[in-house]
Nucleic acid binder design. Structure first.
Length: 288
DNA sequence: CGTTGAACCTGTTTGC
DNA sequence: TGCAAACAGGTTCAAC
């Protein structure tokens, strides 16, 4: 479930419930997805939640010492494929695969749920946080047209792989990569560095519009997951390419196809999104 | 550098 | 109906 819009939805929900609250106690279940479970048990109780931020697909829960003192680092959370983080009333029934409970000073508790445990959770100092987040690429919603073009062209790989590379852009995953490529009419196997400035501009705009709309609709929870506020994301109904193999393209009526690019299912319209032109073999570039 | 496939773990969907 | 295979929103690592 979690790409940029889904993580943003989780962050907004958590921010409303948790900022300003003090963490009273911590209880942990399975901990194999945590860098250091002991550090979480020691580092959270008594700390106040100062802010909840998103950086790409990461969630940063900033902490301060009890009496409004100095920064006490942050809890870094990545939701992986099936992770979820939200505040619940203590009497709310528990969902399966809940692995962490953080009791707050208002009686509610933040719970982390993750069936597959591909997620990650770790206590971070400011330095560790910088080392972790520093290498990430640009935020898709903030990157300029110029920087986007440069970044897309900086890699010698297919555009689908480039979009998924968190060191180029942060936050784009398989669904929104396919959706933006469909919207911009770009084939996923085109080489990123071969896109024209005009195509790159169209892709950036498509990605931006799709992400903003998905955030408005609270993401694309494909499963029947319901968040702490009781509302499922609705964007999945808007998907034009992702998951639509064999169905008609909403734009031209051709049949949507599924191929594997960069090891991931990739859905596209073979008519709207033209394939890459096969380049001549390298050795033949210059005959003799 | 880039690509591919496997691995991590569990649940759901699809196919015979 | 039952069971097994295929597949899943992410990331990382080895091997080529």
């Amino acid at each position: 479930m979690p790409e940029l819009p889904e993580v943003e939805t989780v962050v907004r929900g958590l921010r409303g419930a948790a900022v300003g609250r003090r963490i009273v106690s911590v209880r942990l279940g399975k901990t194999d997805f945590m860098d250091d479970a002991g550090a979480i048990e020691e580092g959270l109780p008594g700390r106040r939640i100062e802010a909840v931020e998103r950086c790409g697909k990461f969630i940063v829960v900033r902490l301060v010492a009890e009496r409004g003192g100095a920064s006490a680092g942050a809890l870094l959370v990545h939701l992986g494929m099936t992770g979820h983080l939200a505040a619940w009333a203590a009497e709310q029934p528990e969902r399966k695969h809940t692995h962490a409970w953080f009791a707050l000073d208002d009686g509610r508790e933040i719970r982390y749920t993750d069936a597959r445990r591909f997620g990650r959770m770790a206590m971070m100092t400011e330095d560790a946080l910088a080392r972790e987040l520093g290498p990430l690429g640009a935020e898709p919603l903030e990157v300029s047209e110029e920087e986007f073009f440069l970044r897309i062209g900086s890699r010698r790989a297919r555009i689908k792989a480039v979009l998924l590379d968190q060191h180029v852009l942060r936050g784009v995953g398989n669904i929104y990569a396919d959706e933006s490529l469909w919207r911009a009419r770009i084939h996923p196997e085109r080489m990123g560095a071969r896109l024209s400035a005009k195509e790159a501009a169209a892709l950036r705009r498509a990605l931006r519009e799709i992400l903003l709309r998905a955030i408005e609709l609270r993401g694309s929870s494909i499963s029947d997951y319901v968040d702490g506020e009781g509302e499922p994301g609705e964007y999945q109904r808007r998907h034009k390419a992702y998951g639509r193999e064999g169905k008609a393209c909403a734009r031209c009526g051709a049949v949507i196809r599924r191929i594997v690019v960069a090891g991931r299912s990739s859905f596209f319209c073979p008519r709207c999104q033209r394939g890459p032109r096969k380049s001549a073999a390298k050795g033949l570039r210059r005959k003799r």
